[in-house]
Design a binder for these strands. Structure first.
Lengths: 149, 149
DNA sequence: CTAAATGCAAACCATTTGCAACGGA
DNA sequence: TCCGTTGCAAATGGTTTGCATTTAG
């Protein structure tokens, strides 16, 4: 928490931006989230604690957090961009159910290593990656059977 | 080409939809594309051959093509949804340059196998996946050095 | 004939931007 | 004080929808 604040404020100073209450509040709320939150999710959470913060500021701050590596954004098929932690959080990938939208997280050392190897082969300097396996989760497979019979 | 048309027309019949000239034209154009085309890209290409086809029909047809597995869509950070072949085209993943936007395609048997293994572990029935490694491509690394010195 | 398809224009909707008031440094 | 920041409202832009007309089956 303190480390992340440090990183954020340092980034602001470096860019000549200002440290404000709204920005700090949004960072705090974002750090408390787990998984994948949309700007709207963050906005609601921030709103609950400080109703004066606007939608726009949430968007602008999430952009800043992304710039300094504290957040990572990913576009989803439903049209929303979602944000997850980008610092001090173990990286993981996702199984995405195309029926119910649920997310399962996983991590594979083998895949991570192989990716680095591939990047090296193409003289590509990787910063991050996104691996999503789409399909039907176990729950939905069971339900589908029930409906079919 | 003929196989794909077969699949498409079969899908239309099954769903009680109609086979139209526009739909066939859009499929033909789509099949000729390589890589990742936005709806707008397809629209321009179709337009060049048949100026009467509308934007809306392209969107609606790409949706149909996706439904029957001939196309696969992916949302990109620039806001555009892009479509690539989903049938009879060897699957591949991407290195995405965050500086110039260029795409490098790659394929790894190891990663593919590992993904299936992971899906199995979670009793997840995979349909497809998307792996993107973001970073700086070799070209942009060289340019950056040139600017810095 | 009849229900689906088409293309236009308008609607949608997540996100971004213009702007006047505000507030760090 | 000086510029960046804020929140509102309006704009943006890719995509979708309503509707009157056309067309496949």
């Amino acid at each position: 928490m303190e480390q992340e604040k440090e990183i954020f404020f340092e980034h602001l100073k470096k860019e000549g931006f200002k440290k404000t209450g709204q920005r700090e509040k949004i960072l705090e709320v974002f750090l408390r989230t787990e998984g994948h939150s949309s700007a709207e999710d963050i906005y609601s959470l921030v709103r609950a604690e400080d109703p004066t913060v606007g939608f726009t500021t949430v968007y602008r701050t999430l952009k800043l957090l992304t710039e300094c590596g504290l957040a990572r954004q990913e576009k989803f098929a439903d049209g929303y961009t979602r944000y997850e932690h980008g610092y001090n959080h173990q990286h993981h990938d996702h199984l995405v159910c195309i029926k119910c939208g649920s997310l399962i997280e996983f991590f594979s050392e083998v895949i991570e290593r192989k990716q680095d190897e591939i990047a090296r082969k193409f003289k590509f300097q990787p910063t991050h990656h996104s691996l999503r396996i789409f399909g039907i989760c176990h729950q939905c497979q069971i339900q589908h059977q029930a409906v079919a019979s």
